[in-house]
């Protein structure tokens, strides 16, 4: 379990990175925290000819609330930094994001793994990807060709596939608005494993009644998905249980060794309801 040979390039800054990526083309891979990539390289499931290390790009390690109340997270910010960030940095109403960190692997993974790395990897069960889809985050990608902004709904394409081009890096992720009544929960056989199913909700509520909201699921398709049918139940003033039922009915998760379709649907019912209750208890 030793990686295949590659050439190592340590990027100095964003500009240098994009220049390297433009030059090296498809054979290059960006490494940030490397918590998924290095494991795949050790199995030789990934074998990039060039590795562009962006670990020195301190300018991408930041976290803060913008003028509109949006949360801006630099791509190189680690899960751990988010997890321990004080309320004045993370901003009111973004507790869902801080709390979701506890579900990502374990502490020694979170200290190295980065927000941008997780998004760019695009695992359908990844907490960050689910959060992005739930809150329709905006991705800021940069290349020599310039900067572009991509909404979450257009960012994730399929299994481990995103809208990022080979010459682009993710520089920032913007969560557009606070989500004071939002929560993410999931289930796996062991703590720290990739979720069999994960569920996240963002409820529109005055703290007493719910009059709408967003529901997103991970582990049920090639990428995290929003579930309109479940959101419709919330908008119509339905119960959390009915919302969860609607979510389970609306998707058709493929079964595998970690859980059949039937079981995943059962988990959806449990987890969506649980997420709604947790969201309202905030």
């Amino acid at each position: 379990m030793k990686p295949a040979p590659f050439r190592y390039h340590r990027a100095r800054d964003v500009e240098d990175t994009t220049a390297l990526l433009a030059e090296l083309g498809d054979d290059a891979k960006v490494i940030a925290g490397g918590q998924s990539l290095v494991a795949m390289m050790n199995f030789r499931l990934a074998r990039p000819a060039h590795l562009v290390d962006i670990g020195c790009l301190r300018e991408l390690d930041h976290l803060g609330v913008g003028a509109e109340g949006e949360l801006r997270i630099g791509a190189l910010t680690t899960h751990h930094t988010v997890e321990i960030s004080p309320p004045h940095k993370l901003g009111a109403g973004f507790d869902i994001i801080r709390d979701a960190m506890a579900w990502i692997g374990h502490v020694p993974i979170r200290t190295r793994g980065t927000v941008g790395g997780s998004m760019a990897h695009g695992d359908s069960t990844a907490e960050w990807c689910l959060l992005a889809v739930l809150l329709d985050a905006e991705f800021v990608a940069q290349s020599l060709r310039g900067q572009r902004r991509i909404r979450a709904r257009e960012f994730f394409f399929g299994y481990y596939t995103t809208a990022l081009d080979a010459d682009e890096i993710l520089v920032e992720i913007v969560f557009p608005r606070p989500a004071p009544h939002a929560a993410l929960t999931e289930f796996a056989e062991r703590r720290g494993d990739f979720a069999i199913v994960s569920a996240a909700v963002d409820l529109d509520s005055d703290g007493r009644a719910v009059h709408g909201g967003r529901v997103a699921l991970g582990g049920v398709a090639a990428m995290p998905v929003r579930v309109q049918e479940a959101e419709a139940v919330l908008a119509a003033g339905g119960t959390f249980r009915d919302c969860a039922k609607a979510a389970a009915a609306a998707v058709d998760p493929p079964g595998d060794a970690n859980g059949s379709t039937q079981y995943r649907k059962h988990l959806i019912r449990t987890l969506v309801e649980r997420a709604c209750e947790e969201a309202m208890s905030r």
């Binding site: 199995f43 056989e189 062991r190 703590r191 720290g192 494993d193 990739f194 060794a257």
Partner: peptide, 23 residues
């Protein structure tokens, strides 16, 4: 487990679920 071709299911700790202090 093994599939019908004799391919083992567990080649990593993702598939072979050794319990942790949590379990």
């Amino acid at each position: 487990t093994y599939d019908g071709q004799g391919e083992p299911s567990a080649t990593s700790f993702m598939d072979y679920k050794v319990p942790t202090a949590h379990e």
